[in-house]
Structure formats: structure tokens, C-alpha cells
Design a protein around this nucleic acid. Structure first.
Lengths: 215, 215
DNA sequence: GTCAACCATCTTGTATACAAGAATATGACT
DNA sequence: AGTCATATTCTTGTATACAAGATGGTTGAC
């Protein structure tokens, strides 16, 4: 927390962009940000470059960097990609997941159930994240695991919103059960299929929510 | 080609790392690189940050950045991930690919065939790349397409080596035919399965090659 | 009055200077 | 002679100064 001002600024900016503090297309002024964070332009520039590399902003040469909030189409594409990534993880995990992994998965699922029983949305969110991450881990492929984690993190703010749907948590739980069962049985195709649907539906729900908000 | 020194240096460094000019764990000296490229440290630092973000180097705070060549295990993981990504593209492309896309795909495949007939390895490499990229495009998902392109680019230097295998090109052609047929028929599962195998075998061949070279 | 060209200003991109931390080498003490 | 502590030096991280390009306004001409 001492050195690496640039890292802190990058994380701070990521959070701000995630939270929607910046509108799409808004220019991120190096000088203003530098003044705001009380540092010089250099660390700010490094932080901005990270945002650009992460796809959260675009850089136009000699013009500056502009925040780039994904539109509805891109969000749907991202959810679809996430679904395919998770399906791949599930496919591989069905063959490779060790008993301890299945144990942790069941534990996370139990955590989800408890959270639903308590009507604890925040708790469910956390346990659900752990549940999915356990599947990534179970794929036995660190590279794929990291890619999945990256996209999961990127979609985090959008998944959060969509939990409000009435009845969504219950349906989600049922799907979790099916996922655990398929992985326990070593059913690669089944696990992939259920996971794909499980994630795809999130994107669709989000779209519905957006559409209803637009009115 | 005028402004953006940093971009040029980043690309140059990427190429050098790809070509294996730098060994794994070697430190990339900002000052030496700056002197070599005839610029100051600032653009070099920006370029190095990009390498780090791309995963081709790791940065240790207050120590510098060190090139990180993927080991055999990570390479296999990357190929496996590529296989799953391509399978996903194929799955979606089976339902979404327009006639023009199928046309371009068949054209690229014909290019592959011609290159094999000419025993033109370099030509085959290019046409094969176009063939696969057409599938990414056919998935009708720009985000997924970009992810696939990114990983394809990252694996480029390793796929190149593996073409030398006797008989690999012929087998590859047969698989291409199967892929085209499945996509034409709209057979999502078939396309995914063939593509997955088609890419996975490349990783395995590469491993064999590495093992034989190690002796 | 309107359009275009030119100039001023602002912003990014680059260079250099400065500060802080880490590694290494050297010296003193046991 | 070996080990620990300290100082020096080298490297990264940050700040500031400078250059080049782009934007917008203003002014002049038609």
C-alpha cells in the first residue's frame, strides 16, 4: 500500500467505471485525475493504460482516453462468452474434479441455499461466486481458470443487478443442484449444457431488466 | 508510424519475445532498451506494461519486469483453452453463419488445399489462419471473436513449428472438410466436437515435438 | 452574413531530473 | 576467518519540463 501509486489509481478508476460514475464516451482527463489523486500525470497515465488494456476505455491517439461502457449488445455477447467458458470449465471439470473439489462445491452450494433461506441477497451473491469459481478451478486448467475469472470479474457489476428478479434465486438453486449432480456423475456433456443455460439466462434476464428500465 | 513510439516498441518487443530472443526469466532493462531504441525510458516503460498485461512478462515491484515464456504445461493449457473457444465458436457458427460466411470458409479451405498441393507450408499457414478466423467471425459474437483472435495470436509462434509434422497437413485438411460439412448442415454439436479435436491435437503434437527436441 | 483560414490554447506524448527502495559490496567485530 | 551491519550504487517509480499535434475561436475576406 506504500509504493505503486499507479496500481491504486487503476483499481480506483476500475471501481468508478464499474459503478457507472463515468458515462460512456466521457473523457478521462489526465490532469484533473492527477490533481484529484494528488499525484503527477505519470502514474495516472499508467493507470489509464491499464483501463484501455482491460477494454474499459478506448484510447484515441493525441486525443485522450474515453470510458467505454458496454452497450446492450456487447453485454449480451459477454454473457454468451461467459456461458461458453463456463460450459468448457464444466466439461473438463466433469472428468478432472477431485473429491475435495466436489466437496467444496457442495459446500458453496449449501452456502447458497442458506443465503436464500435467510433471504440474504448479498450473501447469496458471494456464495454463488465461490460456487462458480470452484468449477473454474475444477477444470484443472490454470489458464482457462484465469480467463474465466477475468470475465467473471468484468461482468460482476451486471450480475449483481439481476439478482433482484423475483424467483430467480430459487431457479438458480435448482440449476446448481443439476450442475453438482452432473459433475458428480462425471457427465461432461450434461454439466456443460446446464452451465451454459445457467449463465445464458443471466444475460437474458439482464437484458429484460434493462429494457424495462428504459421505459 | 509517426507518433506512438511506445506502440512500435511494444510490438517489436512482442516479436522478440515470440521469437525466443529472450530467455525465460530474463530481465528487460529499461535503460538498455531505451538506448537500443533511441528513446527515453518513458515509452519503454509503457511498452513493458503492455507486455505484462499480455502475460508475456511479469512485473515484480521495485525489481523490474522479467520475460515469462510459457512452459510445456501452460502451453498445453493454452491449446486446450483455444480448443474450447473454437468449439464454442463452431457451436454458435453452426446456427448463425450466413451463406457468405460459408462461402468464404469454403474459399479459405480451398486455399488450404491448394497450398498443400503446392507443398507450400507458409501458404497453408496463412490460409489455415484465415479459415479459423472465418469461424470466429461466423459465431456472430464480436466479443467472443476478439477473445479467440487474441489467443490465436498468442499461440501463433507455437502452431507454426508444429506444421512440420509429416502427414499433419493432410489430416488437418480432412478435419477441415468435416468442419465445413458440419457447419453447412447446421450441426452445432458436430462442429464443436470436430473443432475441439482439431485444435487439441495441435497442442499434443507440439508437446511431442518439444519432447523429441529435448532429448 | 457566412465560410474559411490562421492563430492561440490545451492536451497528449516524450525527455529528463529527482526520490526512494533494493541488492551488493565492503568493512568491522566477534 | 566468518558473519552481520552499513554504505554505496543501481534500478524503479514519480515529478516536472518540453515538444508536437489537435481543437476551437477569432478574424478577415468574399
Amino acid at each position: 500500500m506504500k509504493s505503486n501509486h499507479a496500481d491504486q489509481i487503476a483499481e480506483s478508476l476500475e471501481q468508478l467505471v464499474f459503478k457507472g460514475e463515468y458515462e460512456d464516451g466521457q473523457r478521462l482527463d489526465e490532469i484533473k485525475l492527477a490533481a484529484h489523486y494528488g499525484v503527477s500525470r505519470t502514474p495516472v497515465r499508467e493507470a489509464l493504460q491499464r483501463l484501455v488494456m482491460s477494454g474499459m476505455a478506448v484510447q484515441i491517439p493525441r486525443r485522450g482516453v474515453f470510458v467505454r461502457q458496454p452497450g446492450p449488445v456487447e453485454l449480451l455477447e459477454m454473457f454468451e462468452t461467459m456461458a461458453e467458458l463456463e460450459a468448457a470449465c464444466g466439461r473438463l471439470a466433469a472428468a478432472r474434479m477431485p473429491d475435495e473439489g466436489l466437496e467444496r462445491l457442495a459446500q458453496a452450494n449449501q452456502g447458497c441455499k442458506d443465503a436464500v433461506a435467510r433471504e440474504d441477497a448479498a450473501g447469496y451473491y458471494l456464495e454463488n461466486e465461490a460456487f462458480h469459481q470452484e468449477i473454474y478451478r475444477g477444470a484443472g486448467n490454470s489458464f482457462l481458470q484465469n480467463e474465466a475469472l477475468r470475465l467473471q470479474n468484468r461482468l460482476k457489476p451486471y450480475r449483481r443487478v439481476q439478482l433482484r428478479f423475483r424467483g430467480r434465486m430459487a431457479q438458480s438453486l435448482a440449476e446448481h443442484e443439476a450442475i453438482v449432480a452432473a459433475l458428480r456423475a462425471g457427465d461432461a456433456q450434461g454439466a456443460a449444457q446446464v452451465l451454459r443455460g445457467h449463465v445464458t439466462v443471466q444475460g437474458e434476464r439482464f437484458q429484460q431488466l434493462m429494457a424495462s428500465l428504459k421505459k
